[in-house]
Amino acid sequence: MSLFAFALMVLGLLALLFGAILGYSAVKFKVESDPLVDQIDAILPQTQCGQCGYPGCKPYAEAIANGDEINKCPPGGEATIKKLADLMGVEPKPLDSAHGVEDVKKIAYIREAECIGCTKCIQACPVDAIIGAAKQMHTVIIDECTGCDLCVAPCPVDCIDMVPVQETPANFKWHIGRNSGGTVGNIDIKQVS
């Protein structure tokens, strides 16, 4: 009996000891890793468009970290879903069409002649990419616009268009033939798959 008690005691002490070591090292050697939310946030496209149902990219990142689906971001599209799947260790899935479809990159354009200067779009813009003042014409800073679409709905005179980003020689992606007005021959290579 005393042997049994002794064994229990030894085991208990050992458990305590190891527990203490583990607890100590957990505090002492804590690895300061990039919190998951920040890692997810870094992958999201930062359009702040809210199409995912959350007010901005960071809130969606928090939601993903808490177990929400990874396929709710239309601006990021397939590429973002793939990266998120990698990070979260889950299978990539197709974009949830309830939140929108992947589209070409667009930016907002204000038809300035029609703008009445109501400042509603300025308030809606999540990245302060629209400048203007009350009763003054507004305009979009092209380089800052993320194409989130949020300014289109508030405009009382519907003078905001989302225009696709134009391809120029500088950002040409070497899809020869596709951009050149159709009549020009493709570089027709029989591709192997």
Binding site: W174, I176, S180, G181, G185, I187
Partner: peptide
Amino acid sequence: MQFSLSSS
């Protein structure tokens, strides 16, 4: 006159 395109 349009010409056909190809890559070098």
